[in-house]
Design a protein around this nucleic acid. Structure first.
Length: 615
DNA sequence: GTAGGGTTAG
């Protein structure tokens, strides 16, 4: 073994020169020596070692082959031959990490007396990619006490830890440290990580401030903010940021396009969506699966189910997400039967559903009250273990509640160790739909026992239960609780429930008074009141409601039919005729009423005016 | 030798 160490005196020597000196000394040919086998740190040559050449080239081979076993063998050889392998610990760690041996890498790391910043960063990054946030944080917190100052590489990855662990305060502290180190505005990688962290914590203002300060902005930085906006429901702002990016001369890529398509879909902005579709074609992202998925979602959210299907038909290899997106799009557009067909096609093409897919397909079953299909899907979730997913649970509760098999819903609900608020809401709504008002109220009152708070939906569900079961006093109690607490104010839906409850109970004047408390009452509220007028034959309030609805140009087909029916049922034929004339004038045509039932696993549509095949 | 952004669901 030939070993030469240089420490003092030669540090100012250029590494290339040293290589030349070394080569001439050993008589090596030009190709047999690489700089990798020298102890070089930031341009300073600490030493060279003959054996290292061999070890390093073998380690490099392992990283290509991803063979952790081979890395372990080399590690053992280095150690047992008495070789100073810890001086090459960074190479060994690098090889271990590239082969997925994170714990082995950590062991080497812990043995090393001095570690290079790159080694720290590599290990932190590997921990984050393996979702081992606690260990990444522990390492980051050890850096300063060990005299290692985190750099821009450290921050660009470690900020994600604060996000993943829900530590906004720590994230802000790290941002402060970045400012102290003067790294804040210089590095666009750090900028994107900060934008991502702030927007995921719901702090769009800070995300925007960070973006504005970055000197050399790039497409990733802008995309981070666009995504942040869409995830915080600020879709218009997402589109504004996109326009700013284009104006700054930065070209969109497939990531950006996918994000702005989501924003367009959420806004149901078909024209914008089409422009972006055009850009997709122009830039050549037309065949990127994720972009295609966003595109078809945009079309379905804009109500263009056929266009969505057309996009889907052009996807060469639809993945699970694409299949789920197209199924969800069909459900959103009330094409549940088609959605189930597509689900079957998905299964036939050997794509296995996940919790997203199952909850979507269960929604289709709920819409069709397709008990048999839903049961099959439930069985599938038990077999595959997907039944523990909270999304699947709430979809199952909705499904069984909707199909009238409330015992099944209760059975699932009771089996939950820790129900979340969405499952509880689904169960309350299930009770509401099945006329079990007291059970619904009982469960609502129990929410705080689980250490949870009722949310907006909880109130809608429990008030619906009161309405369906005619529980006026209980409904009033819950509504006044809603108005007095600070969890959420009454929304339009809450008013609608309350107006419905009062109206059905014959308290029409109180219901009418409640509408006047709403800032801009919409047609849903007026129709709720009118429905109550129909039950109780109240022509006086009908006339007042009709006047407001027509003055505010809120009137639609269903409302006209409702008003006309109220007049007809109370013998006000003249008023009823006037309403029908208005409908003709507005070219409204009433479609036949339709009910769907399932008898002995057979589905039947019962259409008003048509003879039924059911006897 | 180490770093940042995208597709589906209640």
């Amino acid at each position: 073994m030939l070993r030469i160490f240089y420490s003092e005196g030669i540090l100012s020597c250029k590494s290339a020169n040293l290589v030349k000196i070394y080569k001439s000394f050993c008589g090596f040919s030009h190709n047999s020596w690489t700089q990798n086998s020298m102890f070089v740190d930031r341009g300073q040559i600490l030493g060279v070692d003959y054996d290292a050449t061999d070890y390093i080239s073998r380690l490099r081979e392992c990283t290509f082959k991803k063979s952790i076993g081979e890395v372990k063998r080399i590690h053992y050889e280095m150690k047992s031959s008495g070789f100073d392998y810890l001086s090459f610990g960074n190479k060994l760690i690098d090889a271990y990490l590239k082969c997925g041996g994170i714990d082995e890498a950590r062991n080497v790391f812990d043995e090393m007396p001095r570690r290079h910043i790159v080694t720290w960063n590599s290990l932190i990054s590997a921990y984050i990619h393996s979702h081992r946030n606690e260990e990444a944080l522990e390492l980051y917190q050890k850096m300063l006490p060990e005299g290692v100052i985190p750099d821009e590489f450290t921050f660009s990855s470690v900020l994600k830890v604060f996000l993943n662990m829900g530590l906004p305060h720590e994230g802000r502290k790290a941002h402060g440290r970045l400012i102290c180190l003067g790294l804040e505005v210089k590095n666009v990688f750090v900028g994107s990580a900060l934008v991502n962290m702030y927007s995921s914590f719901g702090n769009l203002k800070n995300a925007r401030l960070v973006l504005d300060q970055i000197v050399q902005k790039d497409v990733v930085l802008f995309t981070s903010l666009i995504v942040g906006c869409t995830q915080n429901g600020e879709d218009s702002e997402a589109l504004e940021v996109f326009v700013n990016m284009i104006n700054e001369g930065i070209k969109a890529n497939e990531f950006t396009v996918a994000s702005v398509l989501i924003a367009s879909g959420n806004l149901a902005a078909l024209c914008t969506g089409k422009v972006i579709h055009g850009m997709m074609i122009k830039f050549g992202f037309e065949s990127v699966v994720a972009s295609q998925t966003s595109l078809l979602t945009m079309y379905s959210k804009c109500g263009m189910a056929d266009d969505s299907m057309k996009v889907f038909s052009q996807v060469v290899n639809p993945n699970l997400v694409t299949w789920t997106a197209v199924i969800a799009g069909l459900v959103q557009n009330s094409r549940e039967a088609h959605a189930l067909e597509m689900f079957c096609r998905m299964i036939r093409s050997s794509v296995n559903p996940n919790a997203f897919t199952i909850s979507t397909v269960l929604r289709a079953c709920s819409g069709l009250t397709a008990l048999q299909e839903g049961n099959q899907i439930h069985a599938h979730t038990i077999k595959t273990g997907l039944d523990v997913s909270r999304f699947v649970v709430s979809a199952l509760l909705d499904f069984y509640g909707k199909c009238g098999t409330i015992e099944m819903a209760k059975c699932i609900f009771d089996s939950l160790n820790e129900p979340d608020i969405v499952s509880i809401n689904s169960m309350i709504y299930g009770y509401a739909q099945n006329g079990l008002g007291h059970e619904a109220i009982g469960l609502f009152d129990q929410i705080t026992d689980w250490g949870l708070q009722p949310n907006e939906t909880s109130f809608v569900c429990v008030l619906s239960a009161c309405t369906n079961c005619g529980l006026l006093e209980e409904g009033k109690r819950i509504f006044s609780f809603l108005c007095s607490n600070s969890i959420c104010g009454p929304t339009r839906d809450h008013y609608a429930c309350m107006i419905d409850l009062l109206g059905r109970a014959g308290r029409l004047k109180e219901a009418e008074h409640l509408i006047t408390q709403v800032k801009q009452p919409d047609l849903v509220l007026w129709r709720t009141l009118l429905s109550a007028c129909k039950i109780h034959g109240d022509v006086e309030i009908t006339k007042r409601a009709e006047k407001v609805v027509r003055e505010n140009e809120l009137v639609d087909e269903g409302t006209c039919v409702l008003i006309s029916n109220i007049y007809a049922s109370t013998g006000n034929w003249h008023e009823a005729d006037k309403m029908k004339a208005l409908m003709r004038q507005m070219k409204f045509k009433k479609g036949p009423g339709l009910s769907r039932v399932e008898v002995k696993w057979e589905k039947h549509n019962l259409v008003a005016g048509q003879e039924s095949c059911l006897r």
